[in-house]
Simulated scan of single mutants.
Amino acid sequence: MEQLALNAWLAANPEVEQIPGRDLFIIARYLVPMEANLAQGCLVAAGIPAVLADAHLMQADLLLAPALGGVRILVPQEYLQHAASVLASLARGDFALDESFTDE
């Protein structure tokens, strides 16, 4: 993503933050570590190299989660738009299994 397009996309998505000095961006935050793991799994399954930050800290003491900002999901710059699309699909329930699902 070229810099001008990136700046426009970031202006339209103010919740996305860059990690200072890195090519990683915080694409999402979760107060529940299991929800963050699920979201990361969806991103990785979509071919996006997503990593969790602070997951172990949140699991150690969930009462600190709101104060520390929760579990952060980080993705490289070139995957930002795709990651946002996958997370929007997850939030809409596009990946939910219906009652008729069988794993056979």
Rank of each mutant, 00 (worst) to 15 (best):
V51C: 11
A39Y: 05
H56S: 14
A67F: 15
E15T: 13
A53W: 11
A53M: 08
I19P: 00
D61P: 02
L10S: 00
E17Y: 11
L63C: 04
R29N: 14
H56Q: 09
D61Y: 03
V32Y: 15
I48D: 02
L63S: 14
G21E: 03
Q40R: 10
M58V: 13
P66I: 06
I27R: 05
G21K: 12
Q40L: 09
P66R: 00
N37K: 15
A60H: 12
M58H: 11
M34Y: 15
V16Q: 00
L24N: 04
H56R: 11
L52G: 01
L43T: 00
D61E: 01
P33G: 14
P66Y: 07
L31H: 15
I27L: 01
P49K: 07
I19T: 00
P66C: 07
A60W: 04
I48T: 02
P66G: 09
G41Q: 04
L64P: 11
E15A: 15
V44E: 09
Q59E: 11
A67W: 14
P49E: 08
L24R: 08
P20C: 03
P14D: 01
V44A: 04
Q18P: 00
Q59I: 10
P66A: 03
G21L: 01
G41T: 05
L57G: 06
I19V: 09
G47Q: 02
A11P: 07
A45F: 06
L43A: 03
I26L: 00
A11W: 04
P20V: 01
A11K: 12
A12F: 07
L10H: 02
A53T: 05
L63Q: 12
D54R: 14
V16H: 10
A46L: 03
A11T: 04
A39C: 02
A55D: 13
Y30S: 06
A28E: 13
D54Q: 08
V44T: 08
L52D: 01
A50K: 07
M34C: 12
D54F: 11
L43W: 08
A12L: 09
D23Q: 04
L38A: 14
D54N: 11
C42L: 14
Q40F: 00
G47K: 09
A60D: 06
P66K: 05
A11R: 12
Q18N: 10
V16S: 06
A11H: 12
D23K: 12
A65W: 10
A60I: 02
Q59A: 10
V16I: 14
I27H: 06
A65F: 08
N37F: 14
A67D: 07
A50Q: 03
Q59L: 13
A50S: 07
